[in-house]
C-alpha cells in the first residue's frame, strides 16, 4: 500500500463485500437522495422525528462496532493508540449517522401521506 489509488480501494472493497458493495452504495445513494428531497420538500427539520432518529442512530453505532468486532475477530477493547480511537469513533459515527439519516427519512416519507 505504497500509493493510495481510489480505484484500488474500489477493487479491494469489491473483493471484500462482493455484490453487497453495490447494494450498500445503492442504499447510500438512494437514502441520501430521499433524505435531501425530504428536507427540501418539508423545508424544516421535524425535531420530534429527529430525536427518535438519533436514538435509533445510537443503536446503529453500537451495531456497527459489534459487526466490526465480529468480522475482524477482535474488538475495540484491543485499541492501543490514537489511530485506534479514531477508527472506533469513525465506525461508531458512520453507524450512527447512517442509521439516523435512514430512520429520519423513512419516518418522514411514511408519515407524509397521513399528514
Amino acid at each position: 500500500m505504497k500509493e493510495l489509488d481510489p480505484l484500488v480501494f474500489l477493487a479491494v472493497f469489491q473483493e471484500m463485500l462482493g455484490p453487497l458493495l453495490w447494494l450498500m452504495i445503492l442504499v447510500i445513494v438512494v437514502g441520501t437522495a430521499a433524505f435531501i428531497a425530504l428536507l427540501l420538500k418539508e423545508r424544516t427539520i421535524n425535531s420530534r422525528r429527529l430525536v427518535r432518529a438519533e436514538l435509533a442512530g445510537l443503536v446503529g453505532g453500537v451495531l456497527a462496532l459489534v459487526l466490526m468486532a465480529k468480522v475482524s475477530s477482535s474488538g475495540f477493547t484491543d485499541a492501543g493508540g490514537p489511530a485506534d480511537w479514531f477508527l472506533i469513533a469513525l465506525v461508531f459515527g458512520l453507524g450512527l449517522a447512517g442509521t439516523a439519516i435512514l430512520v429520519y427519512t423513512v419516518m418522514g416519507w411514511r408519515s407524509r401521506p397521513a399528514a
Partner: peptide, 25 residues
C-alpha cells in the same frame, strides 16, 4: 496516522479484513 512500531488494533483490522481482498485484487 498508523505508527509502524506501535501495537495497534487498526493494523490487526487491516491484516484480518483488508489484506485478503487486496491480495485477491
Amino acid at each position: 496516522v498508523i505508527a509502524p512500531l506501535e501495537e495497534l488494533w487498526i493494523s490487526w483490522v487491516m491484516k484480518t479484513m483488508a489484506l485478503k481482498p487486496t491480495y485477491i485484487s
